[in-house]
């Protein structure tokens, strides 16, 4: 049985209205009934503060407050009402340094443009079915950036009690 997404509230942020429209059509086809939109990061953060969604899907480059700044505000601002909300960053910038910048500021999932229906579905389901622990460090707050456990031979520096 697939998840019932009817009650999920999504905030989509993109300065291209046509991309917003495509995202809306896809999300509504998945059964999501509540999709809000913003065309820049600052407007989006205001909406996020007033009514925190369950998932944020944001573009990376926008005029008037870009996606990376929005993620930073959501994760780190003192007045952020839901700093652990899943954030899916969509971007045509798939260069390694851009993806790493998104990861290092606390993005949950990365969605490459052009996206397909299947890619959007996969990222949405990943945020539901495979939520990631959050990590707080002096220089980072966001989802655990390690996707897999590897054999690590060094000393344990993490707080075991927190696991």
């Amino acid at each position: 049985m697939a998840y019932n997404l009817r009650q999920v509230h999504v905030l989509v942020v993109d300065d291209n209205q046509h991309i917003c429209m495509a995202a809306r059509q896809i999300l509504e086809a998945f059964g999501i009934t509540r999709v809000d939109f913003a065309s820049d990061g600052l407007t989006a953060y205001g909406m996020f503060q007033r009514n925190p969604p369950d998932i944020v899907i944001t573009d990376m480059d926008m005029i008037g407050g870009d996606g990376l700044e929005l993620v930073r505000l959501i994760r780190q601002a003192g007045d952020s009402p839901k700093p652990t909300v899943p954030i899916i960053m969509m971007s045509g910038h798939t260069e390694r340094e851009k993806v790493l910048a998104a990861r290092d500021i606390g993005v949950t999932e990365f969605l490459c443009k052009p996206f397909s229906v299947g890619m959007v579905y996969d990222r949405l389901i990943a945020t539901i079915a495979r939520p990631r622990s959050f990590v707080r460090m002096s220089s980072y707050f966001g989802p655990d950036r390690r996707r897999s456990l590897r054999d690590f031979q060094g000393g344990e520096r993490r707080i075991r009690g927190a696991l």
Binding site: Q7, I55, T84, I128, F134, V135, R158, I159
Partner: peptide, 20 residues
């Protein structure tokens, strides 16, 4: 603390019900 793990309750899963 050098690094702190935080387990976030899966509110989304509670919202979408059983599935997967």
């Amino acid at each position: 603390a050098l690094c702190e793990f935080i387990t976030v309750p899966n509110e989304l899963l509670a919202k979408v019900g059983p599935g997967g």
